[in-house]
């Protein structure tokens, strides 16, 4: 009996402590910092995401006038839960790179009701545009077009292309495949092989190896990310097929990893298309405008994205744009 009373007392004490702890946490510090809650995908997902997260971490510091909290998840429901928590914490801005496109209406309405401004980055969602202030996105189709236009500009006698696709149905795959498919059809380019390597270097290596083994000839490899281009090059090296500037096979990749741009600089590859992860400056500009009370006229902001040519790339480009 004594023990039980003791236990109840202890539980009560712990609960009291908890409540007081919560209270002290709730006290709003008014230090003039803008509170931002950032919901992003897991930075381990890819080099792109790592660079994206780093750009956020560097921008939203106390020195720049921000107080930032981060939540990472590749799952939509976990992200929504994180958004609800940020709303309870009364952040000023909610920055969101959604894992999935749907299911966000309710939580964004809650945010609006609480006076929290929402800015989407990197990925769009299926929700009414009135629920967010701005959406900063990459135009994957435009990335594909830039690359295909570059390829068109090479004026090869004939185009025999191995097309290595990303995970089917992803935005990057749809955009980058779409551009090549359309132009190949229009100009009569031959697609020797079109297969998904699911962003994997090894699978890309096996696919290119199978084309080599079946003795089909090709002169362009259009890989939808750098890893797959790397895998393809490994297969070419094993078969003694030359690649790069002025060689037998043109190598094209996307994402501008630092090591990939170095391959360009060494003229082993020919082209690399950027998928811009440095979105923090864009978000910063928008927040500054909103703080001044200006309105954002253009809701969808498309990131500036370049394509690098091995013939013109410089060390400065590698340092500035490599991720």
């Amino acid at each position: 009996m004594k023990k039980r009373i003791l236990a109840i007392l202890m539980v009560a004490v712990v609960m009291m402590l908890g409540i007081t702890a919560c209270k002290s946490g709730d006290k709003k510090e008014d230090d003039g910092l803008i509170k931002v809650g950032i919901i992003n995908n897991d930075p381990n997902e890819s080099g792109y995401r790592t660079a994206n997260d780093r750009s956020m971490q560097e921008m939203f510091t106390e020195a720049n006038g921000y107080k930032a909290s981060y939540a990472y998840s590749l799952k939509n429901d976990e992200q929504i839960a994180a958004a609800q928590k940020f709303i309870q914490d009364e952040v000023d801005y909610l920055l969101l790179s959604a894992a999935g496109t749907s299911g966000w209406d309710t939580v964004l309405k809650d945010a609006k009701a609480a006076g929290i401004k929402v800015i989407l980055f990197d990925r769009t969602i299926d929700a009414d545009p009135s629920l967010y202030e701005a959406s900063i996105v990459s135009d994957m189709a435009k990335e594909g077009e830039t690359a295909v236009n570059w390829l068109k500009g090479q004026a090869l006698k004939e185009y025999k292309i191995i097309h290595l696709q990303g995970v089917m149905g992803s935005a990057a795959q749809i955009g980058r495949s779409g551009a090549l498919d359309a132009t190949a059809k229009e100009l009569g380019w031959t697609i020797v092989k079109q297969q998904t390597a699911e962003w994997s270097a090894e699978k890309a290596q096996q696919i290119v190896q199978s084309v080599i083994d079946s003795k089909q000839s090709f002169n362009v490899i259009y890989a939808e990310n750098d890893d797959m281009a790397k895998g393809a090059v490994a297969a070419l090296d094993a078969a003694g097929i030359s690649h790069g500037v002025g060689k037998d096979v043109i190598i094209m990749g996307f994402d501008c990893n630092k090591w990939a741009l170095e391959e360009l600089l060494a003229k082993n590859w020919n082209y690399d298309g950027q998928c811009n992860p440095f979105q923090a400056t864009y978000i910063h500009d928008i927040i500054q405008k909103l703080q001044k009370g200006e309105t954002i006229t253009e809701k969808t902001i498309i990131l500036d994205e370049k394509g690098f040519d091995a013939a013109t790339i410089t060390q400065a480009d590698v340092d500035n744009y490599g991720i």
Partner: peptide, 16 residues
């Protein structure tokens, strides 16, 4: 063997 094949690693994709 895996990291040697491509002389590198991508955490989410390797040996998927």
């Amino acid at each position: 063997i895996k990291v040697s094949r491509v002389s590198g690693i991508t955490y989410s994709v390797i040996a998927q």
